[in-house]
């Protein structure tokens, strides 16, 4: 289908999603479940990836900037700013686009092909609002916490380079990660990641909601969700950075 009609269909779906729920009781029954599923259950993967990337980034930075003229804080500073600016927002969201995006698309897609969405509609439920809104809101709400969590653990990962290897002292690392700290970067990163969270969850919901066919098509829907979600993240990353850091 052409890009224009897909975009149009996406916005029409969002128009149905973003209305006040008919039954708040139903929304608040769903919402905590989504917080748990999309947010809390992402913690382990976020933790593992952040620690390891923080570690390897610190190591690589140190090994590749061995010029003695560079100040001692260089490695810590580079690690911290990379984490704050890109890794814990953009790269983390790309990873979560895989995990959360495919989860949302396949869950909603399965409900579509097994006619559970039709069954909801028959019962007078706005299925788009009922199924999708709690997911989007939950994921957008959880995202800043995941980002902060990732930043923290990424820095901890870097600290381990000082402990486990002899290429860097923990003292120099600690000086580095505190040197010339710009709090605005955190704001930028959190805002950016919330926009990405919205993109990931709404695009995945779109592909799931309009799945048609069988199990194979649910698979296609989740692939589409991940691929297109990732592309849009990269595109919006440039846009937001241009707006906020220029």
């Amino acid at each position: 289908m052409s890009l224009i009609s897909t975009t149009g269909k996406y916005f029409l779906l969002m128009e149905r999603v973003f209305v006040l729920p008919d039954r708040w009781k139903m929304f608040f029954r769903q919402f905590p479940k989504e917080l748990e599923k999309l947010g809390l259950q992402s913690l382990p993967i976020v933790a593992i990836i952040s620690i390891f990337i923080g570690f390897i980034m610190t190591m690589q930075t140190k090994l590749n900037t061995s010029n003695p003229l560079l100040p001692v804080y260089t490695t810590g500073l580079v690690t911290r700013d990379t984490l704050l600016l890109e890794f814990s927002s953009t790269i983390l969201c790309l990873i979560l686009a895989g995990k959360v995006g495919s989860n949302i698309a396949s869950e909603i897609g399965t409900m579509r092909i097994t006619e559970q969405i039709d069954a909801l509609e028959i019962m007078g439920v706005n299925s788009a609002n009922y199924l999708i809104l709690p997911k989007i809101v939950a994921f957008v709400v959880m995202m800043p916490f995941l980002v902060i969590f990732s930043m923290g653990l990424g820095l901890v990962g870097g600290y381990f380079v000082g402990i486990l290897t002899s290429i860097l002292t923990t003292g120099n690392y600690l000086i580095g990660i505190q040197y010339a700290f710009v709090p605005y970067y955190i704001f930028y990163s959190l805002l950016k990641s919330m926009i990405f969270a919205f993109l990931i969850s709404s695009i995945a919901a779109y592909y799931g909601y309009y799945a048609y066919g069988g199990a194979l098509d649910v698979g296609k829907a989740s692939t589409n969700a991940v691929v297109n979600g990732s592309i849009l993240i990269l595109f919006f990353n440039i846009l937001i950075t241009k707006l906020m850091l220029n």
């Binding site: 097994t114 006619e115 559970q116 039709d118 069954a119 028959i122 019962m123 007078g124």
Partner: peptide, 15 residues
Amino acid sequence: RKEVGMLFQGSALFD
């Protein structure tokens, strides 16, 4: 819709 009931081809129970 309140006056309508439907049995779907694959039952469509909420899992």
